[in-house]
């Protein structure tokens, strides 16, 4: 921060003349600058701090019992056995299957809702829908998990005639419902960022509403829409509580949507409290944390690059 760009404005300057209200304004200005700067820099400090912390805790595992072949290639996650094995393949399969199914359900819904809100709904309907969707995003994840247990679980059992309704399908539905509001809101923002002059020009050519959307608005909003989907993926990927409650939480590489699975995040949440501080198990969980951190970071970075690309097109 530099004040050198406005030296003559500083109070006490001989040339500034007698003090007046603007001197106070100068102090307020400087104070606000410092606050805003601190706010901005703290985001970087925190993210860096988190990375250092989980990196430090996970490092003991990475330099100790960590064997890449077993860690990524084995489905045996037995951290508490006499001969512990730390294979997260099944956990990765669990997270991937649940997130994948969630996106399969959520992406069409979100894009459809966003297109309706941004392009077709008018006035009251539009405002009401926007508020409702944003409210939906505020539902706590434990409530979603509860819905998974008490609503989706019996529904799956009775519809598909299976013994247990907790598994990939249940947590995929729940996660999809959770990702839909945020993806809808972001996708709608992307559509709204398309200038109205484009719509007007296309309409003046005799294009129908649908043609305007498909031919002009969607291509123009493409980058923003990709970013919305990616951030939704990140949301699903990192979700813990709802997945823990709705997935059945048993270690399994799923072969059907009814199979129970366990997610990477849910494993950390369920086991961390029971491990001894500094044990191999404890550190292995932090190594999973590093993996989650890296993947989420990569997804968000990609989304950000797409958002930046939006202006260039």
């Amino acid at each position: 921060m530099s004040t050198q760009d406005r030296p003559s404005g500083s109070p006490g300057d001989a040339a500034a003349g007698p003090p007046d209200r603007r001197d106070l304004a100068w102090y307020v200005d400087m104070g606000v600058r410092v606050l805003v700067f601190a706010g901005g820099i703290s985001a970087i400090v925190f993210i860096f701090g988190i990375f250092v912390f989980i990196g430090k805790e996970g490092l003991g595992f990475l330099t100790g019992p960590f064997r890449p072949g077993e860690f990524f290639g084995s489905t045996a996650w037995r951290p508490t056995s006499d001969y512990p094995t730390y294979g997260i393949l099944a956990l990765m399969a669990g997270t991937a299957s649940v997130t994948g199914l969630a996106m399969l359900l959520a992406v069409p819904f979100s894009l459809g809702a966003a297109i309706y809100i941004a392009e077709f709904a008018r006035g009251r309907t539009r405002e009401t829908l926007k508020v409702l969707v944003e409210l939906l995003a505020a539902v706590p994840s434990v409530v979603w998990g509860f819905v998974g247990l008490t609503v989706v679980n019996p529904a799956i059992i009775s519809v598909f005639d299976v013994p247990v309704g907790l598994g990939v399908l249940n947590s995929g539905i729940i996660l999809g419902l959770m990702a839909t509001p945020i993806m809808t809101t972001l996708a709608e923002d992307a559509l709204k960022a398309v200038p109205d002059t484009y719509r007007e020009a296309a309409e003046a050519m005799g294009a129908s509403r649908l043609q305007v959307v498909v031919r002009v608005v969607l291509p123009a909003a493409r980058n923003g829409l990709v970013a919305a989907v990616l951030l939704g993926v990140g949301r699903g990927f990192g979700e813990t509580m709802a997945v823990l409650m709705a997935s059945g939480h048993s270690i399994n590489v799923p072969t059907s949507v009814f199979d129970s699975v366990r997610a990477l995040t849910a494993t950390i949440a369920a086991e961390l409290g029971e491990t001894a501080d500094g044990s191999d198990h404890y550190r292995a969980l932090f190594t999973i944390g590093i993996l989650l951190f890296v993947v989420t970071f990569a997804i968000n970075l990609t989304a950000d690059l797409f958002l930046r690309g939006r202006g260039r097109r």
């Binding site: 002059t197 484009y198 007007e200 020009a201 296309a202 309409e203 003046a204 050519m205 005799g206 294009a207 129908s208 002009v216 291509p219 123009a220 097109r313």
Partner: peptide
């Protein structure tokens, strides 16, 4: 309406190069 608008070409004050 689309049929009407197809028969009428419009050029707006500021050029609108669609992002195509």
């Amino acid at each position: 309406l689309y049929a009407l608008r197809r028969r009428v070409g419009v050029v707006f004050p500021l050029p609108v190069g669609l992002p195509l």
